[in-house]
Design a protein around this nucleic acid. Structure first.
Lengths: 222, 222
DNA sequence: AAAACAGAAATTATCTATAATTTGCAATCG
DNA sequence: CGATTGCAAATTATAGATAATTTCTGTTTT
């Protein structure tokens, strides 16, 4: 993949910040101060501001005029919203991608599924999961749709990392396997229905808060 | 509506440029030169660049590093893509909005439909059409979904104005009426199905090109 | 005459500086 | 003692200036 060395500085900054926000390295609600970021990247704040606009568009940051930029907060409602949008759009993408799926692609998707099942931490599971979804959806050849789905995946990953900050138990992904089987049989409709259900599966998990109490954390696990 | 006087300059610029791009005042592929725009708005180019990032996120402009920003081009493929995305997402929004729809809202939506039927030019038809869709979808209470739909509507409007630059023949919108009737009867499923079909209706129309030849123009008419 | 080249002009991307606004804190007043 | 006002520090937003890249144009070369 493009290492981005010819990207503009603003793009580089936005990629690094996006990664930090998604991984949870920066807390929701935390302020992003342009001069501090500029200093860290040894630039002025002009490209930093452009990076902020980019994060805003992805839904990872919110900006109030004259009051600065904060990492976007989220709640159960937004997790559900993203899950439903993903269901609607990924199903659409799959219907268009299906006729162009080759067995080579499906083999790669199966490998991604196995990698996910073997993952012993959230991060590598999420990498494998995203690879699976991208592999089976990319052949739809609809760039705008794929870009929107990518942004939703970023949001999903953020929810996931926030809930499963460290612990992760391996599990075998039956849905992915069912989807692959259906696709291999040319049964697009069945694959689409399974995918639509799959990405709406919201995991729950008790998490200790800073104050010592426990609350439920929610995330899309598909 | 917010007149936007307390918006940041970048937001104001992006709104004006978005309107010009959508209305077709600036041609697809045309370059947006930051110094010229800055001069027009009596500002420096820093807010102009931020406005460009915003247009980029909406899919109205494309930017190549060091080579500047251009008005995004589009083709029949993208018109279809936007239509299908709208169908998927507006159906989702309607399913969530339906339980919150009051007869007052439905009355307003009916007025919007009548206004659309009476419209003698594309612009006012499109205003009325967007009002209808927003009225019945807004109560879903899903901000991210509504924002995405708004961007898709902007794209739709652009396709429409490009195809029907001036001529427009009045027509009565049966789909809108069928949707309202179904919603009044509490038949959400039927309304959703009709809406999904409605926004995928792509109109065709012969258009004279600059070179005098005629080609077909396409646009979403719903 | 078509293609390739070179220099000039225009344009983008960034940096440094300045003005305007907000936020935090402390002292004052009710 | 709590709320409020006022000032200082921090921060955001914009302007003006500079360096680097691209585009344009006219000329030369094959």
């Amino acid at each position: 993949m493009a290492k981005g060395t010819d990207d503009t500085i603003a793009v580089r900054i936005s990629k690094v910040l996006a990664d930090r926000i998604i991984s949870g390295a920066i807390e929701p609600g935390a302020r992003l101060r342009q001069d501090h970021v500029a200093e860290e990247f040894h630039t002025s704040h002009v490209p930093v501001r452009e990076a902020f606009r980019r994060l805003e568009a992805q839904g990872l940051a919110v900006s109030e005029p004259r009051r600065g930029v904060r990492v976007a907060a989220f709640n159960l409602g937004e997790v559900k919203e993203v899950a439903e949008m993903r269901a609607a759009l990924e199903v659409l993408a799959l219907r268009h991608a299906a006729p162009h799926l080759t067995s080579a692609i499906l083999d790669l998707a199966e490998e991604a599924t196995k990698a996910g099942d073997k993952s012993r931490d959230v991060r590598s599971w999420e990498d494998a999961n995203r690879a699976f979804h991208r592999l089976i959806l990319a052949p739809c050849g609809m760039p705008r749709l794929l870009a929107t789905i990518d942004d939703l995946h970023a949001a999903s990953a953020r929810f996931l990392f926030a809930a499963w900050r460290s612990e992760w138990e391996t599990r075998t992904d039956q849905d992915h396997r069912a989807i692959l089987t259906a696709l291999r049989q040319g049964n697009t409709e069945s694959a689409a229905v399974t995918l639509g259900r799959h990405v709406q599966w919201i995991g729950r998990k008790p998490v200790k808060t800073a104050s010592g109490a426990t609350r439920e954390a929610f995330a899309i696990v598909g």
